[in-house]
């Protein structure tokens, strides 16, 4: 049970953009370099993010990407749904076949899959990009202290 590379890399790239933007556009190649992801692949990811209204692009020599909204307004759930589709632990095919399901399948769906999906979506929608950026700084802060000791 894994998220795809698109979701994983896309989320990392969004945190990178939030950390490094500071009001200016960030070149895709600089994100690619810091994250160790190919620029080609990031272009695909950012094209999806742009269409979903999560980032804005500016063309030209000083061009690049910027977040479309403040990090505190961007829920993680929105980023992941844009990149992965609905956040669900079962296939859409399974969810669509409710009419033909057996009693056992009905119980497993309502007691297990629906509960897992609810928890997953609640978690992803309770956190924003700002929370991930804050955690990132905290993580680096701890590391620096350890180095000095």
């Amino acid at each position: 049970m894994k998220f795809s590379t698109k979701g994983r890399y896309g989320l990392r790239a969004m945190v990178d953009l939030a950390v490094n933007a500071r009001g200016e556009h960030v070149a895709l190649c600089s994100i690619a370099e810091r994250q160790g992801i190919s620029t080609n692949y990031l272009e695909q990811v950012f094209s999806v993010l742009r269409k979903s209204g999560l980032v804005k692009s500016v063309k030209g020599a000083q061009g690049g990407y910027i977040l479309a909204e403040a990090p505190s307004n961007i829920k993680i759930g929105r980023i992941l749904r844009a990149l992965e589709g609905p956040l669900s632990v079962t296939d859409e095919k399974v969810e669509d076949s409710n009419e033909n399901e057996t009693s056992i399948q009905h119980c497993i769906r309502t007691c297990v899959w629906d509960k897992m999906n609810e928890a997953l979506n609640d978690l992803a929608d309770s956190l924003t990009l700002e929370d991930l950026v804050d955690n990132y700084w905290k993580m680096l802060g701890v590391e620096e202290t350890m180095y000095y000791i």
């Binding site: 990392r12 945190v15 928890a119 992803a124 991930l132 993580m139 590391e143």
Partner: peptide
């Protein structure tokens, strides 16, 4: 030094 590891850990713990 991963930006998203903490988030993925909380997804696993929640599930």
């Amino acid at each position: 030094r991963c930006e998203t590891l903490g988030f993925w850990e909380s997804v696993m713990n929640t599930l």
